[in-house]
Write a protein that binds this DNA or RNA. Structure first.
Length: 807
RNA sequence: GCCGGAGUGGCGGAACGGCAGACGCGAUGGAUUCAAAAUCCAUUGUCCGCAAGGGCGUGUGGGUUCGAGUCCCACCUCCGGCACCA
């Protein structure tokens, strides 16, 4: 017997909306809970991979509401970005038109899912009322020297006349047309996130409710390392170059140097040498490769410049190479190579037959290649005998005395390049005046709105640059003719602060009101894909700290508790529109209903793991819901009798499951939450098959419905109302378990001999070790294994296990 | 390559260092049905055995432990991120 999921789900979706059940306002009398799922790019179709994520956030919203929290769970749209722009280039449809149509569709999907969002706080990053605050944020950063312009290389497709994202570069060629990609230097805007590197790193220690893997990834991404920076002179040239190393203690082991192909000194080094032609060819090849390809190269490649550097500590002349495993973007773009202590240098030295000098004593048992371990310094003149730290200190002091270097901290983190040569993004609110230079647009003239364009296709410059009457403006400072900045901002800027805007989404006077942020911030729960573990989370943390510094944000960290969920995989690939393997949820809504789909999404696997989509699972969860429905609506042949063991078993199981479900939700083990509920339904079936008492059933069933409410809200609400327990289940309190019912009086003890299970026996839960041993030795099977042998040791862990170790 | 994860039945998965495979899917057999669907019941890691029972089994190889899917070391495979997809 199936319930009418279509009618029931539509009914409750209407009631939640019309009664404003999830509409939230500040309420100082109740504890708040601010619950956010990363706002999505409005790709139009919500597929079952999205459904999984939003089911999690929805379950938490409903659960926390039942626990008495004032829950805020808003939703919005990361609606700027490349996909809508690409669609516009292909079809001429304005991104605003396509994106807003998709938002409408996605909202309908969310409704069909039964999602408990507070839609009164909806934001969309392409809305001028939103992005004017991106621009405001930019100006605040600019005023404090944290937004600056500098040149940086971009991937450039000479045929398409456009800048390419790294992911659009495949094997050094444009993904679309196959033309070899070039590097071009453009003047672009940066945010100075490196100024916050130490705080971003140190504050990770406070984020105890973040997954360790995310914190580790962030730490490694920031990559703080202490070492030294010093200059190395070049033989026969009045020039030198600077290197950074984390291992200045190994300086005596430097047997060659390597410069990045883009290093500014390269030209001077190679010109006129007999290696010039070869070196130039190498540089051109390297320029075509992406950073990842350069680092991924199995074998290190490089080319000799024909020049030698002079090791400042011992005057030794060492060859200078150009190699693409050294990046211009990290450190100084030049390294001292110490093959004895660095594996990449070792590989390179072996390949090009360069000297290897060990400066750390690896001990007699070491037969490996580069030695990274600890040991006394050797072959190093005045550093000999010192340990790593001692040698580091000594050599840094020496470099400082000589005036050629100093101790230095190096970060792997680079400043945040926010310029995009795109149309569909937030315009950067700057003006370039021939008289005054770069001038910010005054705040009272924000937003600088995106102009209409006739053609979205790139023509060698940002699409905005083609809109001449938009570009032409007057200088806010001198009033003369000036031109607007034509780049737009990285969409990560939009997403770095939207959770602040939710707290005060309609404010026209400020990005948000501090008092409102004080009530809601920080987020009590943030959920999103692990693919955002580094960039988005780091940028959001940076912007929060900046907003704190200017007195707006009440917190220095935005996300108290972070949860990163896995992806949904189908046919061996992440479910995504571009892979063409998306499964839309509509047919599940039709055939089985949103509750069955939600339940299966929860059940499909651990939320942190990737899950493989299996079509046949949803009927299973629907069967379960049908069984629960049938139990609650069919007439049972209840009997009048005194309470017996059957009643006790039902109540005990109900409370045990209640405890388990509560704990599992708290730990985000939603898959086992569902299995526990399924097991409980099986216990109900058994109970009803015996001689059920109505009062016992009603009491247990009531708890069952309450537990079902966050996961399968529609059917739970309907049952709740039908059975006359109240009119709006969402507002009912979450039940508490009775510890005395949960406790087990007897437990099955496992009896092992030499660690192998040989028998099991039911024992009282409070059995002592001595008694346990006596009971176990009484078992025929156990005696059979022990007889004739000496029991050397008994490991008793009553009441669950006892192990006899034979001698 | 670097950083971070994950490998358990036919499938998704469960398992505070203590009964490996809960729960579900699928499959097989049965009940019900004129028949089917739906529903209900039973079986379902693997090998040996009539059975009782026993052997083996959590990617591979080692180690720690009375006891390892779980902890440690090495390796293999797959996935995510690598700064202009979001």
């Amino acid at each position: 017997m199936s319930y009418d999921h279509k009618a029931i789900e539509a009914k409750w979706q209407d009631r939640w909306e019309s009664e404003g059940v999830f509409h939230t306002t500040e309420d100082s009398t109740r504890p708040k809970f601010y619950n956010v799922a990363m706002y999505p790019y409005p790709s139009g179709e919500l597929h079952i991979g999205h459904v999984r994520n939003y089911t999690y956030i929805d379950l938490i919203t409903r659960y926390k509401m039942m626990q008495g929290f004032n829950v805020l769970s808003p939703m919005g749209w990361d609606s700027f970005g490349l996909p809508a722009e690409n669609l516009a280039i292909e079809t001429g449809i304005h991104p605003k038109v396509s994106v807003e149509a998709q938002i409408t569709r996605m909202k309908e999907h969310f409704r069909k899912l039964g999602a408990a969002f507070d839609w009164s706080r909806e934001v969309a990053s392409h809305d001028p009322a939103y992005y004017r605050w991106d621009q405001w944020l930019f100006l605040e950063l600019y005023d404090r020297g944290l937004a600056y312009k500098a040149t940086a290389p971009v991937n450039w497709c000479p045929k398409d006349q456009t800048v390419l994202a790294n992911e659009q570069v495949v094997d050094g060629a444009c993904e679309r047309c196959g033309t070899l990609v070039e590097k071009r230097n453009l003047a672009q805007w940066f945010f100075k996130i490196t100024d916050y590197a130490d705080r971003l790193l140190d504050d990770l220690d406070e984020l105890d409710d973040w997954p360790d893997r995310v914190r580790t990834m962030q730490r490694n991404w920031i990559g703080r390392s202490a070492g030294a920076r010093f200059r190395i002179p070049i033989k026969d040239l009045a020039a030198s170059f600077e290197v950074f190393t984390t291992r200045p203690d190994t300086i005596f082991g430097m047997t060659f140097c390597v410069l990045a192909p883009e290093h500014p000194l390269v030209e001077e080094l190679i010109s006129g040498t007999e290696h010039e032609v070869e070196a130039r060819e190498y540089i051109v090849r390297a320029a075509r490769e992406s950073e990842i390809e350069r680092l991924a190269e199995g074998e290190k490649t490089g080319v000799f410049t024909g020049r030698f550097a002079i090791n400042p500590v011992n005057g030794k002349e060492v060859p200078i190479f150009i190699a693409d495993y050294v990046l211009m973007g990290y450190g100084t773009g030049a390294i001292m190579a110490v093959p004895g202590q660095d594996q990449r240098d070792w590989d390179f030295a072996v390949k090009y037959e360069l000297d290897i000098v060990r400066t750390v004593d690896a001990g007699p048992d070491w037969y490996g290649e580069a030695f990274l371990g600890e040991g006394p310094t050797i072959n190093s003149g005045f550093l000999d005998g010192l340990d790593r730290e001692g040698a580091k200190e000594r050599i840094i002091a020496w470099l400082e005395e000589q005036g050629i270097g100093e101790g230095a901290i190096q970060y792997r983190l680079r400043d945040w390049l926010i310029s995009r040569q795109r149309y569909w993004g937030c315009p950067i609110p700057m003006v370039e005046c021939p008289e005054c230079g770069l001038v910010p647009v005054p705040r009272d003239r924000l937003p600088v709105t995106l102009p209409e364009v006739e053609d979205y296709a790139p023509k060698g410059r940002s699409p905005l640059a083609a809109v001449e009457d938009w570009v032409a403006t007057t200088c806010p400072r001198c009033g003369g003719a000036a031109s607007r900045e034509t780049d737009t901002m990285d969409t990560f800027v939009d997403s770095s602060w939207y959770y602040f805007r939710y707290t005060d989404p309609h404010n026209d006077d400020a990005i948000f009101d501090r008092a409102k942020a004080e009530y809601w911030m920080p987020l009590d729960q943030y959920i999103g894909g692990v693919e955002h573990a580094i960039l988005h989370l780091l940028y959001a943390r940076f912007v929060t700290k900046f907003l704190f510094d200017i007195g707006l944000s009440p917190v220095t960290e935005p996300f108290m508790r972070m949860f990163t969920q896995g992806m949904l995989v189908k046919d061996g690939a992440k479910m995504s529109k571009s892979k063409g393997n998306v499964v839309p949820p509509d047919r599940y809504y039709q055939e089985y209903g949103a509750d069955a789909l939600r339940l299966f999404e929860l059940f499909v696997g651990p939320p942190t793991d990737d899950a493989v989509w299996n079509d046949s699972g949803v009927p299973g969860t629907k069967r379960f819901l049908d069984r629960v429905w049938k139990m609650g609506t069919a007439t049972h042949s209840f009997v009048e009798r005194d309470p017996n063991d059957d009643d006790a078993v039902l109540m005990a199981e109900t409370h045990r499951v209640l405890k388990r479900v509560t704990e599992d939700i708290n730990r985000f083990h939603f898959n086992t939450t569902v299995s526990s509920l399924m097991s409980l339904a099986n216990v109900f079936q058994e109970y009803l098959g015996r001689s059920p008492v109505e009062k016992t059933f009603d009491e247990a069933y009531r708890v069952m419905i309450l537990m079902l409410a966050p996961a399968a809200p529609h059917v739970a609400h309907e049952l709740w109302e039908m059975r006359g327990m109240g009119s709006m289940l969402a507002n009912e309190p979450w039940p508490e378990w009775d510890e005395s019912l949960v406790a087990e009086s007897t437990v099955t003890m496992v009896v092992q001999v030499n660690g192998k299970v040989r028998d099991r026996v039911d024992v009282p839960a409070d059995i002592t070790a001595e008694e346990a041993e006596r009971v176990a030795l009484d078992l025929d099977k156990v005696r059979g294994w022990i007889d004739g042998a000496v029991v050397r040791k008994v490991i008793a862990r009553p009441p669950t296990v006892i192990n006899f170790v034979l001698g």
